[in-house]
Design a protein around this nucleic acid. Structure first.
Lengths: 183, 183
DNA sequence: GATGTATACTCATTGATTGAGTATTGGCAG
DNA sequence: CTGCCAATACTCAATCAATGAGTATACATC
């Protein structure tokens, strides 16, 4: 239970999402994870990697693990969210992604769980992410303007990013329409 | 000079691009790399990491290193492309990026060097990349269609990707316009 | 009774990445 | 003229993500 120094604890936090609805054992998670109707399209995670992540999440106090014997099968390790784990997850799932390169994986994952948490959560996430995207957009547009005449490569990089951000914004609109409006 | 088994030798190959125009020492590369008019906006590379990559490229036969004494300063290591290094780079720089997640870094890097190699190279790269993107697009559209009614999350993921790919295609058009037409 | 498969993990190793350290020289402020 | 800082040019040890391979048991089935 060190004071949680590890800054970037990004995607592994998402694993906590699978434990929201109750205790789980390690073997069950890849089953849910690989469902193509869910995150199976977005994530790939090797079994050994998963166990390593779970162990570290336990070490850092986000969840507890207890061994449960079964009559027939080999014993399994039950993972359960701690209070810290629960609140950290709730915070994580509503916080927008801060860097463009993380959208691909992180945002889609957040959105997946946010929808499961309820329409308010999903809407808050998309609203906040839209604000962040609009900041990015403004910043890239400024930079593109500055580079336009003198630095053609930098200008093209900016144009690329601007296109990606704009299409992300369009997509966010689509997502918000799809979420049933919060009361 | 092992038979180059390492499959993914991705971005580090780009380092060879800096050696195309002549021998270099390790310290010079981060200077060129961090130029914001060039790849400085796209890449971040720590010094120690850079040296590690150079060492491995040398180990794998893409370049040779020799120590050069200087009158005053400490001696430096001169890196020079081998024939294998030269041809590997030429191939790499013209090959389209195969996975969407690599576009952000890899494609922009390729394009940077391709422009330096000449308009034919840049045009070949963009043409091929466009073909790959169109494949992705078709595949995602098929998948979106299949997921539409029954798997809403999967459908959204597809829509996200479709948007990104479409905006990439628009950007590729922009790039080709900017490249002076090959004779 | 042999073979395969689902359950449920563990472990050793690789390999990317980083922070910190080292050594030398030139310039310049005091 | 000396003390200190910045620039040059790397090296090294440690960390940590990620993977492949291995282990052990039970149930099914042929």
């Amino acid at each position: 239970m060190s004071p949680l120094i590890r800054q970037p604890l990004t995607v592994e936090l998402a694993l906590l999402g699978f434990l929201r609805e109750g205790a789980l054992h390690g073997y069950e998670i890849p089953r849910r994870l690989s469902d193509p109707a869910g995150l199976g399209e977005v994530w790939r995670l090797k079994q050994s990697h998963l166990y390593a992540l779970l162990a570290r999440l336990a070490e850092e106090g986000y969840l507890t693990s207890t061994l449960k014997a079964q009559e027939t099968r080999p014993q399994r390790r039950q993972y359960r969210l701690t209070r810290v784990g629960r609140s950290t997850f709730t915070e994580w799932v509503q916080a927008p992604v801060a860097r463009g390169r993380d959208v691909r994986l992180d945002f889609l994952t957040k959105f997946f769980f946010a929808e499961r948490e309820g329409p308010q959560v999903a809407e808050r996430l998309t609203t906040r992410q839209r604000a962040v995207c609009q900041d990015w957009l403004r910043q890239q547009q400024r930079q593109a303007e500055a580079a336009r005449a003198t630095r053609p490569f930098e200008w093209k990089v900016c144009q690329y990013r601007i296109g990606q951000i704009e299409s992300m914004l369009t997509w966010l609109d689509l997502c918000e329409e799809a979420v049933p409006a919060a009361p």
